[in-house]
Design a protein around this nucleic acid. Structure first.
Length: 263
DNA sequence: TCAAATGTTTGATC
DNA sequence: GGATCAAACATTTG
């Protein structure tokens, strides 16, 4: 569920509650989510003060006075402020002023403590909102492969997931199967412009709640109401009326208008 | 019962 | 070595 706009919304909704607050204790219950070990992680966190909460791509880095707490929401992770634990609660941070709860049905997410950012996680590409056009274009030209799978590759660009890849390619009128390096500079510029615009608009609407995404306060987003192609197979294209087509590309459901978006 | 789901990692194969 | 693709992860939902 959570791509850049959803992760950004979560960060904005919890940061004011937890910044500059002390962690009294922490509890963990999923070895899949917390791979560093429960006791080691809890011991490292107890007594620490949260200094900042940052997002890079889909990663959340909670900076402590010593070390970092890394959170990735995976497919079904939720960070909730002062929520009641459920059967899917995998981690709980008890702060001096309240409780931060991590719920995750499928356990594809992570909640782990690191003294410093590990090389494997630091390798993620530049944040999608931070990359200027010239960098974006030069990176595009150096890549083989098709534009949509490339946009989803977090080592190429951090933050874009399946929903926003489909929506931004529709906005840019680019077919998802277009070879990335073959995009003209003008079409690449359009992709870059719509990338920023779609993400900005989605953040403004607090993300897309397709199934169960909610922010730190438990509120759903509203951007799903503005989707043009994602999940719209068979429905008329808002621009030309042609039925939206769904194909599988790079193992992901891919939605596009066969008339507006050409290779 | 089968297919699909917003993400990432791993291993196999070009 | 690099890139690409499929499978795997765990669970719910339609």
């Amino acid at each position: 569920m959570p791509e850049l706009p959803e992760v950004e919304t979560v960060v904005r909704s919890i940061a004011p509650h937890i910044r500059n607050r002390k962690i009294e204790r922490a509890e963990f219950s999923s070895h899949r989510v917390t791979r560093g070990g429960f006791a080691r992680t809890a011991n490292a966190l107890a007594g620490r003060t949260i200094q900042d909460v940052r997002r890079h791509g889909k990663q959340i880095w909670i900076a402590l006075d010593h070390g970092f707490l890394y959170v990735h929401l995976g497919m079904t992770g939720k960070l909730l402020w002062n929520a009641e634990p459920t059967k899917y609660t995998r981690a709980v941070l008890v702060l001096e002023n309240g409780t931060l709860v991590y719920d995750d049905v499928r356990q594809f997410g992570r909640v782990e403590y690191f003294k410093k950012v590990p090389e494997s996680l630091g390798r993620v590409g530049p944040d999608a909102m931070q990359l200027d056009f010239e960098d974006f274009y030069s990176r595009l030209q150096r890549r083989a492969g098709l534009i949509k799978p490339l946009l989803l590759n977090q080592n190429f660009l951090g933050g874009v997931g399946n929903i926003y890849a489909d929506e931004l390619l529709f906005a840019a009128r680019v077919h998802p199967r277009t070879p990335a390096a073959r995009l003209s500079k003008e079409r690449a510029r359009k992709v870059h412009r719509e990338l920023l615009e779609v993400l900005r608009l989605a953040i403004e609407h607090r993300g897309s709640s397709i199934s169960d995404y909610v922010d730190g306060a438990g509120n759903r987003g509203a951007f799903q109401q503005m989707h043009n192609v994602y999940g719209k197979e068979g429905q008329p294209c808002p621009r030309c009326g042609t039925p939206i087509r769904r194909i599988v590309l790079g193992q992901r459901g891919t939605h596009y208008c066969p008339r507006c978006q050409r290779v």
